[in-house]
Simulated assay, not measured.
Amino acid sequence: MGTGTIRSLSSLVKRPPLSRFSGIDLPLVSEGIKDHDGLSAAAAQSRASVLRSRAESYIALSRHEAAIADLTESIALAPGNARAWRLRGESHRMIERYEAALEDFDEALKLEPDSAYALGSRGQTHAAMGRLEEAMADFDHALTLSPDSLWILEAKADALVDLDRLDEALDEHAKILALNGDLPYSWVARGDLYQRLHLYAEAIDDYTKALDLEPEHVRALSRRGEAFRMADRYEEALVDLSRALELDPDNDRALGSRGAVLSELGDNEAALSDLDRAIELDPEYVWAYRVRGEIFQELDRHEEAVSDFTQALHLEFGD
């Protein structure tokens, strides 16, 4: 299918809010505050609080370097604030500075050992580093503290997929859907897992449930189209993939899939147009090179076929 390992779309997975008005620090003296440019203890705590709040907005804007700068100063002012360590760890994680993220989550957990948020985020960091057993330990601990946390359940399901413990991953998705079956992404995520298991009818059912909730959900349309393609239901696949591309014309995966469908339906020129555009959007789209190479081969355009197969081998295996 060319879509790689299933992973959660973190932008769609709900986390607990980073702050609440009741959590704003009051300028009281704290023994954890260090002197900073001659500020009084109360002023230092107040400044640290504002810096943390500004950092949250930077994080929401994906301006993680700016967030890290604010949080570093905030930590210098008030090193005993677990939230600052946790937020800086999350910013480091989002820009793939995983070792720094782990250090920050470790500090946060020294201050708040029962923080499900920090445990879940540290688990995601371990998973991103390929340390799947350590990730599972963090997720399991976090879920004893917050058993209904959807984003942690989703992260655990992803780790189980990477560990090839697919039946257990399906169990986690069942928990997610029991908690919130009104979230289209939850159905899409399980549909992706069914598709990985080559259970295309089950995948199509889950994508359909997502589309019942949100008829213009681009990923559900694209993935259902792919499942239809894998089940040799090409006309239905073409309808879904075309609708996904009406909504998102630069969806490279939908273009690649539609290209393969059009080829199966005998329209190789239209197929090549879609695959050319998919590769233009993502020059490292290995599967698109392979499909386009096969079409070139079918058309006796063997020099172009060789070029595409060579590029696919280079990208996937380093040849």
Rank of each mutant, 00 (worst) to 15 (best):
G2V: 00
G2S: 02
G4C: 13
I6F: 07
S10E: 09
K14W: 05
K14P: 10
L18R: 11
L18A: 10
R20W: 01
F21V: 07
S22R: 12
G23H: 15
I24C: 03
L28A: 11
E31Q: 10
I33Y: 14
I33H: 10
Q45S: 13
S46N: 03
V50R: 03
L51R: 06
L61A: 09
R63Y: 11
H64L: 14
E65W: 13
E65P: 05
E65K: 13
A66M: 07
I68E: 02
A69M: 09
L71I: 03
T72H: 06
T72S: 08
I75Y: 08
A76T: 02
P79F: 01
G80E: 15
R83E: 12
A84Q: 07
W85L: 04
G89W: 04
G89N: 07
S91L: 06
R93D: 12
M94I: 11
D104T: 09
F105W: 12
E107W: 08
L109N: 14
K110P: 10
P113S: 03
A118K: 02
S121V: 04
G123F: 15
Q124Y: 06
T125G: 12
G130T: 02
R131F: 04
L132R: 05
L132G: 11
E134F: 12
A135S: 08
A135C: 15
M136R: 03
A137N: 09
H141A: 14
A142G: 11
L143F: 06
L145M: 10
I152F: 14
A155I: 05
K156Y: 09
A157C: 12
A159W: 03
V161C: 07
D162T: 00
R165A: 15
D167S: 09
E172M: 08
H173E: 03
I176V: 15
N180C: 06
D182R: 12
P184M: 11
Y185C: 05
V188F: 14
R190E: 09
G191T: 08
G191P: 06
L193G: 05
Y194G: 00
Y194S: 01
Q195K: 11
L199D: 01
Y200A: 08
A201S: 13
E202S: 08
E202I: 03
D205C: 07
D206E: 05
K209G: 00
D212N: 13
E214S: 13
E214V: 00
H217A: 02
V218D: 13
G225S: 14
E226I: 02
E226C: 03
F228Y: 11
A237P: 10
D240S: 05
L241F: 00
A244F: 01
E246W: 00
D252A: 15
L255I: 04
G256S: 02
G256Q: 00
R258G: 01
A260E: 13
A260P: 00
V261S: 06
L265T: 11
D267L: 07
A270S: 14
D276G: 08
R277G: 03
L281P: 03
L281D: 01
L281N: 06
Y285G: 01
V286I: 14
Y289R: 03
R290H: 00
R290W: 01
V291R: 04
D300H: 15
D300W: 12
R301Q: 07
A305M: 09
V306W: 00
A312M: 01
A312S: 01
A312L: 02
A312P: 00
H314E: 08
L315A: 15
